[in-house]
Design a protein around this nucleic acid. Structure first.
Lengths: 228, 228
DNA sequence: ACAAAAAATGCTGCATACAGAATACAAAAG
DNA sequence: CTTTTGTATTCTGTATGCAGCATTTTTTGT
């Protein structure tokens, strides 16, 4: 995100069934991205007037979006003083990863039981794409596909609540991970773990998938530890 | 909750440091309770005008509270049609309990490692109080203390993210559990399991606590299964 | 010159007002 | 009698305006 000018309310393209994107959703997504990508660093006060003008929206919908993000845990509401971007300590991050690991281990087990072949194939496709991005050295796309794969596995579990909780933690961690750029050797290790994950999933090997996911996230902590 | 008249903005009791309760928090809590306690059954449309008048608040803060609850997963936002109380299927409930079980098992293990004696003592106190309510046949207080105990264990883990996720699921399930009134024999069994939990916690027996918590929630599903 | 008090500024919190969409109702045509 | 279409009402979505609190700056007294 380089510069924010104004929010397009709706595509306004040609005719046809225009995608009715509610402003609320657009705002939530936009603010979330701004936080994740560092446009709004931790500790920043969300200035309603200024921010609203920047985005081309009045304060009312903006405040609603902020409240939504507060419930999501990305911002903190301070009475009479508005909202500030939440700051996570190293322990917070470690704790989140601990929970995320537990959830992914569960998701892995469930996914092996319930996932359809088509679902597995989709994850495989994402993985292959990710590997090619890795080989091309495209960190940003690699990162995004990485997230998508973990999200996809959580969804393959067929457990909506699990996918929800996973999503919330994933979002909270996105900002951290967005920063943490590991070196080449650790990056290679991460890709290898992913390879192993997909293999286990395709073999419907519960124990192995669960184990790999757990190991993967244990290492994730080591990777981001220093950048927190 | 029998009848809703209006929200007290602040206690307005005697002088002194008046508790500065922000209206937002009050509203969120109030709406949450209304949903949990069945004043707003699943599928109900949250009528902003009417509801606001009922609570003595204008639409603006009400909408903000609704957005907050939407992020929490208690209500669903339908574009151009407002918000409706989310309806959970039997599978949804089962899924939530599956995740909650996984989280509590983790919390149990962590709590045995990190909990202070004082913390454990507090849970014990809650438990004793709960047992006395049980013996007195006071279902409502029993139910509330039951929830408090599970929440307390999640917090004893010392993992804020874990407590958060646990809290969200617990809230979503409250409405269901509030309805599910098990018979005397199952009730007795639940109390016995709680007794075992506390013993394991006091003994700092990770495996046993984790196991009991898991078993407890497995049975919880059986208890509410029919009332969903 | 320094400290304390007072005024002024800026922001949040809430209410109200207005515009557009959705639904309900009614009338007319088949 | 059913269906369709036009109209009216109701509700949501967004903007704006006002009051109160917090903070900062200015002023005043020592």
């Amino acid at each position: 995100m380089n510069e924010i000018t104004s929010l397009e309310r709706r595509p306004e393209g040609g005719p046809g069934p225009i995608r009715r994107t509610a402003l609320h959703d657009t705002l939530v997504t936009h603010l979330r991205d701004m936080i994740i990508e560092g446009d709004l660093p931790p500790g920043t006060r969300l200035h309603e007037g200024q921010l609203g003008e920047q985005l081309g929206v009045s304060r009312t919908p903006l405040r609603e979006a902020i409240k939504y993000l507060a419930s999501e845990g990305l911002v903190e509401l301070v009475p009479s003083r508005g909202a500030v971007v939440k700051r996570f300590s190293a322990k917070d991050v470690q704790d989140m990863l601990t929970v995320l690991r537990s959830l992914e281990e569960l998701a892995g087990r469930l996914a092996c039981e319930t996932a359809s072949d088509a679902g597995v194939a989709e994850v495989r496709a994402l993985h292959d794409e990710m590997v090619s991005r890795y080989k091309a050295g495209d960190r940003l796309q690699y990162y995004k596909l990485n997230q998508q794969i973990h999200t996809a596995i959580a969804q393959l579990s067929g457990n909506a609540a699990l996918a929800d909780m996973h999503g919330i933690l994933q979002t909270r961690l996105k900002r951290i991970r967005f920063i943490g750029h590991e070196g080449p050797e650790k990056w290679a290790a991460a890709v290898a773990e992913h390879e192993e994950m997909i293999a286990a999933l395709e073999a419907r090997d519960q124990a192995r998938l669960s184990e790999v996911l757990g190991r993967h996230l244990r290492k994730a902590w080591e990777r981001v530890r220093d950048s927190v």
